[in-house]
Amino acid sequence: MNRDFWNAFASNRGALVGLAILVVVVLMAIFADVLYPRSPWSMVTAPFQPPLSDDVLLGSDTLGRDIAAGVVHGSRVSLLIGLISSLVALFIGVTLGALAGYFGGWVDDAIMRFTELFQTIPNFVLAVVLVAIFTPSIYSLVAAIAIVSWPPLARLARGEFLSLRSREFVLAAVTTGQSTPRIILREILPNSLSPIIVAASLTVATAILLESALSFLGLGDPNMMSWGYQIGAARTVLRQAWWMSFFPGIAILITVLAINLVGEGLNDALNPKLARKGRGR
């Protein structure tokens, strides 16, 4: 990363705040076992302890489990699923978009119809159906979230490839007889990366929201503590115990907000021409 990039990124104060929060969340995920060595599923105190009780900072849940331990361990699932499913979506989206944009014609037509089909399907409903049918696990969650997240990335990649396809450096590469895969991977892809990176960062945020919503409905991986699960489990006792659903929700909110802020910062740094548009300065 060069200095210009960092300066542009740092000139967006929100992005810096987002980055700081994100670093904290990542550290929390890495050191979850150090912070809370005991399993987040284990009962540590009496049920329904309010926050700031003796041994549980954020209170305990209906089974006497530590909410704070759950929030700390839950960050692992959220980040892991958010990141991996976005990478898979990125791979599917960019591959399809690149093929459509590069080859055009009927390939483009077929791929775009396919993309349109997936954009029509209500994505959350599809994710629910997929996870329910393939039984909830970290793999089915990643697959389902990736399957509903790739279409916008494909459209974006297609647009980039379409416009770069006719540029001189690409034509030059074609004339000098470079192979098609090489042109796609070495010539066009590196030049279309900036908008794709920005979009991918926002996909991570959406993926985390999707994961939490699925876990809330009871479709999370049954072996992994997650924020969505905590909220779903506390839903029925909302009136008696607000803290059980409040803190995990705040964790989701802050993490997603931080990723969005970082995404905007990346946008400023990577697409300087577009950066000020829409911010009115």
């Binding site: 839903r235 909302l238 909110l253």
Partner: peptide, 22 residues
């Protein structure tokens, strides 16, 4: 807008219930 964009809607629903109903 930024905050609303990052709020999980099922959680927002619960919090609204907490505030306006409870």
């Amino acid at each position: 807008a930024l905050v609303s964009y990052a709020t999980p809607l099922f959680w927002l629903g619960l919090m609204l219930i907490l505030l306006f109903s409870v």
